[in-house]
Simulated scan of single mutants.
Amino acid sequence: MQNSSQWAEMTSSSENCSFTAINSLAWSLQLGLSIPTFILGLALNSLALFVFCCFWRKQTKTSVYMISLVLADILLLLSLPPKLYYSVTKVPGLLCSLIQAPYFVNTYTSIFIIVCITVDRYICIRHPFEGRANQSPRWAVVICCFIWAAAWICSIPIYVFQKKEPIKCFHNMSDQTWSVPFIVSVEVFGFLIPLAVMVFCSAQTIWILLNHKTHDKKSVEESGSLRVIVINLVVFLVCFTPVHLGILLQCLVRQHLIVSCRMRQAISLFLQVSMTFANLNCCLDAFFYYFAAKEFCKKAHLRRAIELCPVLNPCALRWHCQRWENAPCQDTDSAVPDVAGPVP
């Protein structure tokens, strides 16, 4: 009887738990993070798309991946204003689905394209001759189309499971959306497997570069490969780990494994803020474009783009172009040294 009474009290407390203050705080934090992310990210990605399409005349696998990544980031950024507005305004469930689907589709498209770039870089460094000989963009186009198609197909549950009555988007999703099989699939296939591939390829590539560094320190330092690999992995971990941890915790809440009001409020705030924090990846992807600029300087006439776009810093970019013109360039997003050592 005592256990039944305690359970009834916990259930009653759970039902009376208010999220009004939490949602208001979360929306203020989202607004403060999303506005600069939207402005800076849209400017950087629009410039990158212009440069990739107009000045990278020889298309390679990496250029295809990067153009796809830029498009995914731009579409994700364009979904931020309606996401912010409709997260505090009630609209029919179908409209919420049309708003939520592009946001999640472009998020996971970005994740998988980043993984493809990492794998491509690993292959070019682990097998440099085969990697350079196989730079046809055809397979990259096929892979990118498959990623986009798979992401949209996997977004079908957002439409099927959505509530029909007016709701605030990104809130109060149906129980089917938070079902254990669906969330486990999102966690495993949308984050854990890409993370495992990222860690493996990055670790193997770093090992090869560090071994090569003892023999030819200058070439590796000039290439910048080691730096961009580490930055890429750190950005991936920092941007996408919190949001998937938040999704897992929210699933436990919806399965009534976490019933404490204070814990539920904390998890709700953490999930909403971590989703916004993950959007910073759209700005941090600019590191890819910065190191790819070496390719433009030598093969795509980036200095012409600088002359056409006076808002860029000509002095700084000219110094980098002059420095990179003396460094080896390959058809990858960063220079790849001629190494192919044993991997543990």
Rank of each mutant, 00 (worst) to 15 (best):
322 Q>C: 12
53 C>G: 04
143 I>Q: 08
63 S>T: 14
198 M>W: 03
95 L>G: 01
83 K>S: 09
64 V>P: 01
15 E>L: 14
239 C>R: 02
293 A>S: 11
166 P>D: 14
243 V>G: 02
95 L>S: 06
167 I>N: 04
256 H>L: 07
77 L>H: 05
121 R>C: 06
92 P>S: 10
91 V>D: 01
210 L>E: 10
290 Y>D: 03
263 M>V: 03
161 F>Q: 02
33 L>D: 10
40 L>G: 01
274 S>W: 10
327 A>K: 02
45 N>Q: 15
93 G>K: 02
212 H>L: 06
218 K>E: 15
291 F>S: 01
2 Q>N: 12
323 R>F: 15
42 L>E: 04
133 A>L: 06
86 Y>F: 14
120 D>I: 05
197 V>P: 00
261 C>N: 09
153 I>C: 13
274 S>Y: 07
220 V>E: 08
58 K>G: 03
235 V>G: 00
70 V>L: 10
324 W>V: 04
184 V>K: 11
231 I>M: 07
85 Y>S: 01
193 I>G: 05
274 S>H: 06
65 Y>S: 05
8 A>R: 08
288 F>Q: 04
228 V>P: 00
259 V>N: 14
299 K>A: 07
26 A>R: 00
217 K>C: 09
166 P>W: 15
341 G>C: 09
316 A>G: 03
146 F>L: 11
312 L>K: 07
123 I>S: 01
48 A>W: 12
8 A>L: 14
279 N>H: 05
209 L>V: 05
280 L>P: 00
104 F>N: 02
132 R>M: 10
181 P>L: 13
244 H>M: 14
132 R>K: 03
134 N>L: 13
80 L>F: 02
224 G>T: 11
289 Y>A: 08
70 V>D: 00
164 K>V: 12
44 L>K: 05
305 A>T: 05
237 L>T: 08
25 L>N: 03
163 K>L: 14
240 F>R: 04
67 I>G: 00
136 S>W: 07
338 D>A: 06
307 E>S: 15
11 T>M: 12
236 F>Q: 07
138 R>F: 08
97 S>H: 06
84 L>E: 08
326 N>M: 13
292 A>G: 03
159 Y>R: 01
102 P>H: 09
191 F>W: 15
161 F>R: 01
174 S>I: 09
274 S>F: 09
140 A>I: 09
106 N>G: 00
178 W>G: 07
104 F>M: 05
213 K>L: 10
271 L>D: 10
155 S>N: 10
129 F>G: 00
99 I>C: 07
60 T>M: 01
103 Y>R: 00
121 R>H: 10
288 F>N: 02
306 I>L: 14
256 H>T: 04
271 L>T: 11
136 S>K: 02
69 L>W: 06
165 E>K: 11
94 L>K: 01
315 C>D: 13
235 V>F: 09
3 N>S: 10
342 P>M: 13
